[in-house]
Simulated scan of single mutants.
Amino acid sequence: MDIQVEDVRIRAILSTYRKRIPMTEGYVEVKDGGKWKQICNTEWSPLNARVICGMFGFPGERKYNARVYKMFARRRKPSYWDYAVNCTGNEAHLSSCKLGQVSPLKSNVTCGGGLPVVVSCVPGRDFAPTPTPMTGFRKAFRQEQPLVRLRGGAIVGEGRVEVLKNGEWGTICDDHWSLMSATVVCRELGLGTAKEALSGGRLGQ
């Protein structure tokens, strides 16, 4: 079954998150026929949350207060998407995950006793919400010497991968370089899931 995903977003539900940039917590919503719909959480897994956070540039996910969202869902009736999501955790986008008909879902009326899917993502250190006074821990975290970096890219999050070894920066060979390898580097740098794994020295030897 070929299911087209028009668009995906994280929509802030709690007022504390509505004014935050970047948007890190809220309902996962999929645009379907021009309308935003929620995903039923009865078949949702942490691997799906990893993909959602990654596609928005967040390196990881964290726990959230489920009780508050339960109360909110009771007050406002959600409109559910017809499909369940099954990701391996390595996909760059929700549309690359296995999507199938939710069962038993009858014309968007029920979610089998479930609730709308919520994700809470951890922003990378360069994209953490501001302004918060920097604690000693965060200062130490910021001053840590990175072991991997990107060089030669035109935009943030793009570049030739360089690794620090014995006090010197060097490149790595692109044999067996894949989207999964690139994602490991991107998440380490706080950039979420890799969109593309370039090879052939396109960003300099």
Rank of each mutant, 00 (worst) to 15 (best):
M1D: 13
D2C: 12
I3Q: 06
Q4N: 14
V5H: 02
V5Y: 08
V8I: 15
R9A: 09
R11V: 08
A12S: 14
A12R: 00
L14A: 13
T16D: 12
K19L: 13
P22G: 04
T24M: 10
E29M: 11
K31H: 06
K31M: 15
D32Q: 09
G34H: 04
Q38N: 15
E43W: 09
W44N: 02
P46C: 03
P46A: 10
N48H: 12
A49C: 06
R50K: 15
R50Q: 10
I52V: 15
I52K: 05
C53M: 08
G54H: 06
G54Q: 04
F58T: 07
P59Q: 04
E61Q: 15
R62P: 05
K63L: 14
Y64R: 01
N65S: 12
A66F: 09
Y69F: 15
F72E: 09
S79E: 11
Y80I: 07
Y80K: 01
T88E: 13
G89R: 06
N90T: 11
E91G: 03
K98Q: 13
K98I: 12
S103V: 14
K106P: 00
S107R: 13
N108D: 12
N108Q: 12
V109Y: 09
V109F: 09
T110Y: 06
T110R: 06
G113C: 01
G114V: 08
P116C: 07
S120Y: 03
C121K: 04
G124Q: 04
D126F: 02
T130Y: 11
T130M: 14
T132Q: 13
T132I: 10
T132A: 13
T132N: 08
P133V: 10
R138I: 09
R138A: 07
K139Q: 14
K139E: 12
F141D: 11
R142Q: 12
V148C: 04
R149Y: 06
L150W: 06
L150E: 02
G152T: 02
A154P: 09
A154G: 15
G159Q: 02
R160S: 04
V161H: 02
V163C: 08
K165Y: 14
G167C: 03
E168K: 15
W169V: 10
T171L: 05
T171M: 08
I172S: 00
I172T: 03
I172Q: 00
D174E: 08
D174L: 07
H176G: 01
W177Y: 05
L179S: 07
S181L: 04
A182Y: 01
C186L: 07
C186A: 01
G192C: 01
T193G: 02
A194C: 00
E196F: 11
A197Y: 03
A197G: 03
L198G: 01
S199A: 11
G200W: 08
R202M: 07
Q205I: 10
